[in-house]
Simulated assay, not measured.
Amino acid sequence: MNQDIQFLKELQSELKTQDHDSQAAPRFWTVGDYEWVEAREENAERYSVYLPYIAEAYVLDDYLEDLKEDSELSKEALTELKKDDFDDPIEWIRKYIDEGAELIPERKVHIIQPDTMFLTKAEAKSHIKLNKHHYTSEAHTYAMTSWRAPKVERLLKILETFDWSSITYLNKR
């Protein structure tokens, strides 16, 4: 029981002193990150190419760079790919790689990773560090407010304000 009380005292101190990241109380932290999603052409920040024959998609610029090193391509295909005036990659890909290839316009969006909820920012940071293989290099803590959640608000207020010395049996030890 004393270990639990000590844990709650330390948690209380951390809750009172941690950065709020401009969020109102009650607050908690999640993992924020970014992912690429399909977009309208006019909103595209990059393109991926979908190759139906292998049911895979690749970032177009990276894919073209990798192809320049592909020893299995014909000399004609490589020469055309490396030309300075190369301006229609999807036609080249359809001609030499996969006739059903499609360009997919994409944009980067901020997401809140599911199944992440932390009472402290430090715990969220530690989680990201220990689980970086699940996230991009842009993963970060993201503060959120538990809006209109009276039970969460009450619990966090108790955790932040409870006077542990007021418990009678603790004072007898």
Rank of each mutant, 00 (worst) to 15 (best):
Q18Y: 03
H127D: 10
K9Q: 11
E160L: 03
H133Y: 04
D61V: 05
K151F: 12
Y169M: 05
I112D: 00
K129H: 05
I167V: 14
Y34T: 09
W36T: 03
S126V: 04
A149N: 15
E153N: 14
Q6L: 12
K172V: 02
P89N: 10
P114I: 12
H20L: 08
E160K: 12
A143P: 00
R173V: 10
S13W: 00
T141L: 01
Y169E: 10
T168G: 01
D163R: 07
D70M: 14
I158D: 06
R154W: 13
E160M: 11
P114Y: 10
V49E: 15
K125R: 08
V49S: 11
D33I: 06
S22K: 08
E56M: 10
P114K: 14
Q23F: 01
R107A: 06
F7D: 05
H140M: 05
L130S: 00
K83D: 15
R173T: 09
Q6Y: 03
W164P: 00
D4P: 03
D4Q: 15
V49M: 06
E123G: 05
S137L: 03
L170T: 01
L155S: 08
M1D: 04
D85Q: 09
L119I: 02
H133Q: 03
L78K: 07
V31Q: 03
A143C: 08
E45R: 09
A39G: 00
R107S: 03
D61L: 04
K16A: 14
F7E: 04
P150A: 15
S71R: 12
D98V: 13
D87Y: 07
Q3F: 09
E45N: 04
D70C: 14
Y53W: 07
M117P: 04
T136F: 02
T136Y: 02
Q18E: 13
I90T: 11
P52T: 13
Q113V: 15
H127F: 14
D4E: 09
T136W: 02
L73K: 09
E72C: 06
F118T: 00
E102A: 12
D88W: 06
R173Q: 14
I112Q: 07
T17D: 11
R107F: 00
I111K: 11
D84L: 10
K157L: 02
V49L: 05
Y50I: 01
T17K: 05
R94A: 10
G32T: 07
L159I: 02
F86Q: 06
D84Q: 13
T17H: 04
H134E: 05
A101R: 01
H20A: 09
E41I: 07
W29C: 00
F7Y: 14
S146G: 15
M144D: 00
F86R: 02
S74M: 07
K172M: 02
R173L: 13
Y47K: 02
K9Y: 04
K121S: 03
S71P: 01
Y53D: 15
I54Y: 01
Y50R: 08
K75P: 03
Q23Y: 04
F118V: 03
E72M: 12
D62G: 05
W36M: 00
I112K: 12
Y53S: 15
L78N: 11
E69T: 12
A24E: 07
D98I: 11
D62R: 09
Q113E: 13
Y63R: 01
V37T: 10
D87K: 13
F118Y: 02
I97C: 11
K157E: 04
R148D: 15
V49R: 12
A101Q: 00
A39I: 01
T141A: 00
Q113R: 10
